[in-house]
Amino acid sequence: MKILKFEKLESTQKIAKKLAREGKKPWTIILAKEQEGGYGRKGDFWHSPKGGLYFSIILPKSKIENLQILNFLAAFCVAKILKENFKLEPFLKLPNDIFVNGKKICGILTENVIFGNLKYSVMGIGLNTNIDKFPKDLEKKATSIKIELKKEINNEEILKEIIKGLKEIFVILTQTR
């Protein structure tokens, strides 16, 4: 697994889309410790201070139907990891959001870039892991694993588990469809 690590980016999605277009291999991961302009569906801002897990994956070329299912199943994959590793009780708001105790903890965004006959797809995941505190306007809407568990977790270990899970889903999808 190739992980490109950055201290700070405007957005891992933007870099992933650029690199996908330049021909970077599928399953390349763009990981940032911090994002200044992280975003979710319809361009909604994603609060991305240090401590959280923010990454984008260049997806292999695939049928749009498979990507749609992968997009849905990615939320199940992350929720399963939160439940099994940390005994949290995640609630899925499909297609792309995961909540814990009524507050958002993770967002997933799949984007396709269409350039003539070519298509590139990237998936971005923002998971609130080691965030101590949210700004006032987000306090009642967002939470983190650290806030819920009162302890820090290893971001890279979770990242690897998520990627492993997504790859397994992708193999099943492309073999059975």
Partner: peptide
Amino acid sequence: RGQTLILLSAMKMENEIL
């Protein structure tokens, strides 16, 4: 060439048309 023209939301995914 390569400039984003339109964003299209489909099947719960975002599509950027260049």
